[in-house]
Amino acid sequence: MSLATLQQVLPPCLTNGTAVAGLVVLGWEDAMAYVRAAEALQRPVILQAGPGCRAHTPLPVMGAMFRTLAAAASVPVVAHLDHGEDAAVCQMAIDCGFTSVMYDGSALPLAENITRTAEIVTFAHRQGVSVEAELGYVGYYGGAHSLGTDPGEVALFVRETGVDALAVSVGNSHLMIRPDATVDLARVRAIQAVAPNVPLVLHGGSGIPAAQRQQLARETTICKFNIGTELRMAFGAALRAAIAQDPNCFDRNQLLRETIDPVSAAARTAIKGLAGI
């Protein structure tokens, strides 16, 4: 099909009981595996370049990679910047061909988060790019604690910023290696009640049990789940197995090729659950 934006793939999820997977990319093999998984299920997919990825691979390379995969894909593919630190990084991603950017001002005071987010929304929309923002702080497993999203701030935030999607903190955390998170469904309901037309996003999707991810997609306006850790774990297991199978193999391409099918299978499971199929 072609490149798509969040504004194109998320709004249908508000009413059809599904959600789209935002899959964290760290290299070519997993990005290719994700697109193959999405094509197998005929579902859109969001390829995400987060801070860890960007520290290893320059944005122009990631942008070209995502656009190359999208050009040959039979499903919509969103090229998404995850956790953009500031307006400059967001604009750089747009210049590199990304179709969607996430600005993370969640650690800032509300007024400053609104001001900075609105600035990014203005120039991104002018260039046909969608914007995700975060309100309430989503913490890290074994690190900074989450600060829940205040439903009382949501209506003001979405009205003043014009964001296309809103990441919220409702018990989810990044980098969870087990699905032990407890999502505060009452908070989710309160948030969607004041912003019913704004697709909500849950970061830290690997920490949420698959059955609950499917329930939330079906019953709420959470339209995007970011999933990374469980897929990195599938990659690591496949790579270790490939090395163990042939300890004498030194060919990087041969070893990495062995990760594609297992990672694609893990991605298919995640995407399928969110689609309710």
Rank of each mutant, 00 (worst) to 15 (best):
Leu3Trp: 03
Leu3Tyr: 05
Leu3Asp: 01
Ala4Pro: 04
Leu6Gln: 13
Gln7Trp: 04
Gln7Tyr: 05
Val9Gly: 05
Leu10Pro: 06
Asn16Phe: 02
Thr18Leu: 02
Ala19Leu: 14
Leu23Lys: 02
Leu23Ala: 05
Leu26Tyr: 03
Leu26Pro: 00
Trp28Arg: 06
Met32Phe: 03
Val45Pro: 00
Ile46Pro: 01
Pro51Trp: 12
Gly52Asp: 06
Ala55Trp: 12
Ala55Phe: 11
His56Phe: 01
Pro58Ala: 14
Pro60Val: 03
Gly63Cys: 04
Arg67Gly: 02
Thr68Glu: 06
Ala72Phe: 03
Ser74Ile: 00
Val77Ile: 04
Val77Met: 01
His83Ala: 10
Gly84Cys: 11
Glu85His: 14
Glu85Ala: 15
Val89Lys: 13
Val89Asp: 11
Met92Lys: 11
Asp95Gln: 15
Cys96Glu: 05
Val101Gly: 08
Met102His: 07
Ala107Ser: 15
Leu108Glu: 06
Ala111Phe: 13
Glu112Tyr: 10
Asn113Arg: 14
Asn113Ala: 13
Thr115Ala: 13
Thr117Asp: 15
Glu119Cys: 11
Glu119Trp: 09
Glu119His: 13
Val121Gln: 11
Val131Tyr: 14
Ala133Arg: 09
Leu135Tyr: 14
Val138Gln: 09
Gly142Gln: 15
Leu147Phe: 13
Leu147His: 15
Gly148Ala: 15
Asp150Glu: 13
Pro151Asn: 13
Gly152Ala: 09
Glu153Asp: 13
Leu156Val: 09
Phe157Ala: 09
Glu160Asn: 12
Ala165Ser: 14
Ala167Trp: 12
Val168His: 10
Gly171Met: 11
Ile177Thr: 13
Ile177Asn: 12
Ala181Ile: 01
Val183Leu: 15
Val183Arg: 12
Ala186Ser: 12
Ala190Cys: 12
Gln192Asp: 14
Ala193Phe: 15
Asn197Lys: 13
Asn197Ala: 14
Asn197Phe: 10
Val198Trp: 09
Val198Arg: 05
Leu200Gly: 04
Leu200Asp: 04
Gly204Thr: 06
Gly204Trp: 04
Gly205Ile: 07
Gly205Phe: 06
Gln212Glu: 11
Ala217Trp: 01
Arg218Val: 06
Thr220Gln: 06
Thr220Met: 08
Thr220Tyr: 07
Thr221Pro: 07
Cys223Lys: 10
Gly228Ser: 03
Glu230Ile: 02
Glu230Trp: 01
Ala238Lys: 02
Ala242Pro: 01
Ala242His: 02
Ile243Lys: 00
Cys249Arg: 03
Asp251His: 03
Leu255Phe: 03
Glu258Val: 07
Thr259Gln: 00
Pro262Lys: 01
Val263Ser: 07
Val263Arg: 05
Ser264Glu: 04
Ala265His: 04
Arg268His: 02
Thr269Val: 10
Thr269His: 08
Lys272Asn: 00
Gly273Gln: 08
Ala275Pro: 01
